[in-house]
Amino acid sequence: MADTVVPAGPETAVEDIRLKHHFATSAQQMDADTLGMWTFLITEVLFFGGMFTAYVMYRNMYLGAFASTSQYMNVVLGGTNTAVLICSSLTMALAVRAAQLSNRRHQILFLILTMIFGTAFLVIKGFEYHAKWVEHLVPGFGFQYEPAQYAHHAQILFFLYFAMTGMHALHMVVGLGLLTYLVVQAYRRVFSANYFVPVEMIGLYWHFVDIVWIFLFPLLYLIGHRR
């Protein structure tokens, strides 16, 4: 590929003060961190995977009921949120890039942009949740549904809706916390071309959360969205 390959860090990376005692080289430490993060993301795949499995089974069983729920899903807000998250992924990628290039100002800028997009997502999500509450669509809390023939099975979908998007939102909140940490560290000039692993790792996490939403959007909002 056309990307630049920068040999970052001198041969004597061992001297790096950020090198933890049990690693021999910075490269080893970075390899370990990366592999650890990806392993963690695999656990996340399977964590969400449990809910996706349930979704697939019930969708197969109660397609009609599931499709009918899409009339209560706000495609505009869902679509906007998808776009917002994609934007946040871009700014996150740019923040990582800025860190790799030791560009502190850009890094802080893009991190803050990412946080703004992330917050926007949560605010929009909050409006959606509120609307569901007002429409009595929260299972277990006075659930009411039209058409009545689907009332029972639609509850399953809404339960999954809240479980999946709620879990996703929780991950977003954690992500925002991590981003705050990154901004503070970046402000303190911790990151440079020699040391940017935390930015990259939290970036991976953020993109992963984005990927989850990329699947949630069509599965929850667009099931039967055709008249």
Partner: peptide
């Protein structure tokens, strides 16, 4: 690979 499924 397994434990997250139990968790959820």
């Amino acid at each position: 690979l397994g434990t997250p499924v139990l968790a959820i």
